[in-house]
Amino acid sequence: MVEQKSGSNTIENSDSTHKITARNVNVFYDAKQAINDVSIDVDMENVTAFIGPSGCGKSTFLRTINRMNDTIPSARVEGDIRLDGQNIYDPAMDVVQLRARVGMVFQKPNPFPKSIYDNVAYGPKIHGLAANKGELDIIVERSLQRAGLWGEVKDRLSDSGTALSGGQQQRLCIARAIAVDPEVILMDEPCSALDPIATAKIEELIHELRGKYAIIIVTHNMQQAARVSQRTAFFHLGTLVEFGETSNIFTNPQETRTQDYITGRYG
């Protein structure tokens, strides 16, 4: 692996300014190793893109960060992942709290079969973020506004979330994720089920959200990675091949594998 950014990848330095520090992470599905010794840092107010060929473990690694791999019985995670210096695999770590701090948007829009309002209010309700209906209304409105959906749905908040278009559903899912005021947002190919216009809207949204969160986005679209991210990580066969400033990765990759992938020579 080539660390372009200066600094060591030893654990002692993990209390630096990074939001997330992952060190020597291995993930196994039963005996099969899906992630092999990956170390990475993610900063606040930054968009980090994960790219790489299909099956290289991008989703798997992404899901280690909010411990969604816990829901897969065969998955096992080794290594050290810290959020603000705190080991998230520590038994003392409350998974429920962790997931409130690290939100997630999935590849396929998955609004709950509830009203638009209830979709957004779901997180604040279960985490007790609103003392009364008035506060909840404010959270819902603000989240929808930030997700750029308010104007389109403000008159039909009681309609089912599943009745929206695909792009609207995905923005609803983003609104739902930011309603609990997370610090990190993980997005696993959030645009792959959307048309170019809806995609452009989401990308715009990512730009705006960037100022407040640490965002990690998995994408198969090189242009998208180049457009939205500041740093890019290239995965291949479960290993992190190259990680650095997006502009460097795309204009001056250090590894031939990276070069081949971004120029479309294999994938």
């Binding site: 969604m68 939100g103 709950f112 985490h127």
Partner: peptide, 27 residues
């Protein structure tokens, strides 16, 4: 009920029983 519903709820920080009560059973 699609696994995506369950994952969506769990990823919001809902516990298993909240997910069952509020998402899976209504669906």
């Amino acid at each position: 009920v699609p696994g995506a519903m369950r994952d969506g709820s769990l990823a919001m920080g809902a516990t298993k029983s909240e997910t069952i009560k509020k998402i899976l059973l209504p669906a």
